[in-house]
Each structure stands twice: as C-alpha cells, then as structure tokens.
Design a protein around this nucleic acid. Structure first.
Lengths: 193, 193
DNA sequence: ATCATCAGCAACAGTCGTGTAGCAGATACT
DNA sequence: AGTATCTGCTACACGACTGTTGCTGATGAT
C-alpha cells in the first residue's frame, strides 16, 4: 500500500506519503481530461506547488509510471478476488468484469496508459492477458464460448467492450455494466437463439 | 478532392497541392506513431522544410483539422458506396464495415482524432452516427438484431470492434476483418445456436 | 518568355514546460 | 524539546516547439 515513492527509497513521512497519493489522484483527473496537461496543472489540481510534484517524482515519466503501476496492481488484485481459476467461469467472468470496470471508472487515464501498445509495461500487460486467456479457456471448456473461437480475438473484444462500457453515460454501476459487457461478449447484439 | 487549403483560398499551384497531400500523409504516419510529435518531424517525414508546413497550415490545429476533415469525408463517401438505405442490411453492414476498415487502416490517427470525445467534430460524428443507427435499425427490422437491443450500445460496440480489428496483426484484409467484426457484433464469441 | 507562385534556407522572437536550487516556515517524529 | 523532514515560494537555467520574415533559386502557368 505504501512506499509508492519514486525518488527516494527512505520511508516517507506521513504527510509526504499523503502528498504522493493526492498528486497521483489529481494527476489522474487532469491527465484523463487532457493527456498533455502540464505538471503545473497537476500540481494546481492537487493543491500543492509544482516543485512538490518534482520533489516526489523525478520527472513526468516517473509520475505516469507510478500511476500505471498503481493501476496494474489494482487490476491484478481485483482479478484475484474474482477467483478466476476456481469459481464457475460465468461467475468469475461477471465478477471480474465488474471489478475491473470499477477500477477503470476511477483511473481511466492510467488504465489507458498501461494498456498502450509498445509501452514499457508490456510485461504487466502480458501477465494480465494470460490470466484473461486462461479464464476464457475455462469458459470455453464449459461451453460458454464456441469451441473454435480465437481466444486472442475474444480477449481483445472483451477489453474493447469494457472500454466502451466505461465510457457509457447511462450508468456507472459496475454490476449493471458488467452484465451488459458479458452478455454482449457471449451473444453479441443479435437475437438470442 | 482538391482545395484542401487551410491558409489560402486562392487555387493552389499543382506542386503546392502535391505538397499539401504529401504533408497530410506524412503527418498521418508520424502522428499515428506519436501524437505529440513536432511539426519538424512531420516535415522531415514529408521531405519538406518545416517552414513549408507552416506555409500550408497556419498552425498544428489547422493541420489536424485538415486530416480529420479528409477522413470524415472519406468515411461519408465510403458509407455512401455501401448503399446503407437500400441494400440488404447484412450486405450493407459487411460492405461498409470493410470500407471503413480500409480507411481506418490508412488513417488511424485522423480516425481516432475525429472520433475523440468533446472535439469540435461532434457534428460530423453525429451525422455518421445517425447513419449507423439508421442502418442498424434496418438490420433490426430484418431480424438481425434482437428487437430489444439498445441501438446506441450496439453502435458503440460496432465502433469498438472496428477499432480492435484494425489493430489486428493477423490480417490486414478488410474483407476478412469485416467478416470477423460483423459475426462478432451479431453473435458474440459464444456458441452459435 | 514572362511572371506569379512555390520551396528551401537561415535567422529571429516568443512562449511554454521542465528541472534545479536555496531559503524560511510549518509539521511530523522520538 | 529537539531534530529531521516537508512544503511553499522565488528565482533561475535550459531546451523544445512554434510561428514569422526575408531572401534566393526553382518551378508551374499562360
């Protein structure tokens, strides 16, 4: 939970740690609205001086990195809590979808950034991706997916649907959105047989 | 086709017009790889001097605007050629999907930009969106979509699928990709009934 | 052939974002 | 209470990108 420090490894004082969190959250808000916003704007949104941002994060990249690592950790944790390897596939799929949606609703920029192609986070992406494929494989074995489905494609579609659902204006309830995502993933928008 | 001029309204000389096209295409390549690339990089990729870019486009925004308008026009034209209001819905859907995919494969940055939320292109988006909904309505009437399907959601899913298909590495054949997109849109990845 | 237009080039000014440094006052730890 | 740490503030240096101007030579149009 703590030690998000990027510049110093010495344990931070309580108020400094609070600053880090505040800056991360402000950066999420500001950069979500404008990915090229200056650190000045981030600092202003966080209610701190610009120099404080530089004090806690060596440079812009370090700040973004901290946001991405934060969100990747959240996603991993949230997948864990959905028991993807033991719960019934449909249950796990729904629960994990809802959980991931909740993360994405709160950290849209960091989420987008962590899944950007060709980034230094390919490793983190791969791990999550592997877990996704594993879950989909279980779903396929359970007959939820067609036997000849391309799982990589299914995975991409799944991500895309989560992305669209997060942009939705009608609702921000992860459970409702998850239902829509999973339904659409499995059956599309065509008539149910 | 011509008169893409952004700075002058007087008809351009032939070589100048060629410059404009070259710059637009170079900008697409460069900005697709890095949306914050400098105009210097664009100029270099186009094989012209930076000042020439400024000669043809008053500022960065004007350049991007030209790219977006270009792509919006292409998409409109490509939808036209699919006869969305007269051809059988499934045929039109497939053909338009393939056509739009072809555009998106060539102009990924401009496409992304023109569909960015909260941009000055909301008008253009709305028009295309309306045509998409109209086509989906016809598809629904033909029984291709469930009667209770939320068409706005279906539309978003459709766009997202096109986006994912365009990122696909396995194939760049619009026809094949379109098949995948339409299939997935209508039936998801679940087993066919 | 003549003339308007265009492109490359060099130089310049201005703006903005980044990153650093030092100091003074406030705040947390023990 | 004493000490180390943290923050805001001001100031500065630096680089990058932008946009303009004027010139010369080249090229298209008629």
């Amino acid at each position: 939970m703590s030690a998000v420090a990027t510049r110093e490894q010495r344990p931070l004082r309580a108020d400094a740690e609070r600053s880090v969190r505040t800056i991360l959250e402000a950066a999420e808000k500001v950069l979500a609205a404008n990915p090229t916003a200056s650190l000045e704007q981030v600092a202003e949104a966080a209610g701190v001086a610009r120099t404080t941002v530089h004090r806690r994060f060596a440079n812009r990249q370090a700040l973004v990195d901290a946001m991405v690592r934060n969100v990747l950790d959240q996603v991993e944790a949230v997948i864990d809590s959905g028991h993807p390897d033991t719960a019934p596939p449909l249950v796990a799929l729904h629960q994990i979808t809802a959980n991931v949606l909740a993360v994405k609703l709160g950290w849209p920029f960091a989420m987008q950034e962590s899944f950007a192609p060709g980034s230094k986070w390919a490793e983190g992406q791969r791990h999550i991706n592997a877990r996704c494929v594993r879950l989909l494989t279980r779903a396929q074995a359970a007959g939820l997916l067609a036997p000849d489905t391309d799982l990589d494609w299914a995975c991409k579609v799944y991500y895309a649907l989560i992305g669209e659902a997060a942009h939705n204006t009608s609702s921000t309830d992860p459970q409702l959105l998850a239902t829509k995502v999973v339904e659409t993933l499995l059956h599309g928008v065509g008539p149910r047989a």
